[in-house]
């Protein structure tokens, strides 16, 4: 590994942290915008981890949010029901972080289990099986009364803050990047490009597919835990098929296989969806047309179609920004 080039991304993230903190402390950036940034960062974790499974290894998955749900419910149950942590107690931070990691580990285990049966399947069949797993996980949450059933897991303390989420997102990107740039990552890429050929050159495709699924699920579980502790609720409907599709859209809009693209799209699409609130209102005020919030998602969907039609390789294609890249590849 080329250690000399490691700090570039670190410096960028530290700068981002300082700018956001300063703007927030001076009240130029209000709590609303900070919340959107937090949410975008959680989407960064979800999108980059899905990219590992989907973009890098080429295993099309439609159930990513199911893993996030596992993480959310496991960590939420730990902090809320079992440990009964309180935000006011500073000693709670460590158990909270451990709970989040526990959520990630359980999600990873589920990802590992799902990785095996999925091995026999490819392409669309794999997509539909992952979709099925995601929905089954959601149905299970819906029917466990101990974690609230359809009411959801309530009263989760608000531990997630900008610092925690940013650090988690940073670590996720760095770990996934290092994985991709390692020989393991090359093996995963070879599966995406041509599985049969990969096997012929002695890549243990089984091992790498399960590995991608396990790692991806781990980070999704972390993201789910952070989300639950940000909005103080874990609810079955948050982890269904439609939500998985939202993350999928991010990696395709950003460019499959590009972590830079995933990061940009996670921020871009989250801010776009909020910007449209203001845009639609401004348009209604300016023209006097009776258009309300119900048109926001129409415009969002149209923009998505246009991105795919006119830039179907996504914003970044397969390229990676120099800031993110660790080693230069010839």
């Amino acid at each position: 590994m080329n250690v000399r080039k490691l700090p570039r991304f670190l410096i960028a993230v530290v700068l981002f942290y300082i700018v956001v903190e300063v703007l927030y402390r001076t009240e130029i950036l209000n709590g609303y915008l900070l919340h959107i940034i937090n949410l975008s960062l959680i989407y960064v974790i979800l999108a980059t981890s899905l990219n590992l499974i989907n973009g890098i290894t080429g295993q099309f998955s439609l159930g990513h949010m199911g893993f996030a749900g596992v993480g959310a419910y496991v960590s939420g149950s730990l902090t809320t029901l079992i440990l009964k942590l309180s935000v006011t107690n500073p000693a709670s931070m460590l158990p909270f972080l451990l709970s989040i990691i526990a959520g990630g580990v359980v999600a990873a285990f589920v990802g590992f289990l799902i990785g095996f049966p999925s091995l026999r399947l490819k392409g669309d069949y794999l997509a539909i099986v992952t979709l099925g797993f995601g929905e089954i996980i959601r149905t299970i949450f819906n029917n466990i009364d101990a974690v609230g059933g359809p009411r959801g897991l309530l009263g989760i303390p608000k531990f997630s803050n900008f610092t925690v989420i940013l650090v988690a997102a940073f670590l996720t990107v760095v770990i996934i990047r290092n994985l991709i740039e390692s020989s393991h990552g090359r093996a995963m890429l070879s599966i995406r490009e041509n599985e049969l050929a990969a096997e012929l050159v002695c890549v243990n495709t089984t091992r790498y597919k399960v590995m991608a699924s396990t790692f991806g699920a781990f980070f999704a579980g972390i993201a789910g835990g952070l989300l639950a502790h940000l909005i103080q609720l874990a609810h079955p409907t948050q982890f269904g098929f439609i939500k998985s599709v939202e993350v999928l859209i991010m990696i395709y809009a950003g460019g499959v296989g590009s972590l830079t693209g995933s990061i940009l799209a996670a921020f871009g699409l989250t801010f776009l969806s909020e910007g449209l609130r203001l845009g639609i209102r401004a348009l209604a005020d300016a023209t006097g047309l009776p258009i309300g919030g119900e048109w926001r998602m129409v415009v969002y969907a149209l923009l998505l179609i246009f991105i795919m039609l006119f830039r179907n390789e996504g914003l970044m294609g397969m390229r990676e920004s120099r800031i993110i890249k660790n080693v230069e590849v010839d």
Partner: peptide, 8 residues
Amino acid sequence: GDPSEGAI
């Protein structure tokens, strides 16, 4: 009708 959107 989405909790995450509600927080926003």
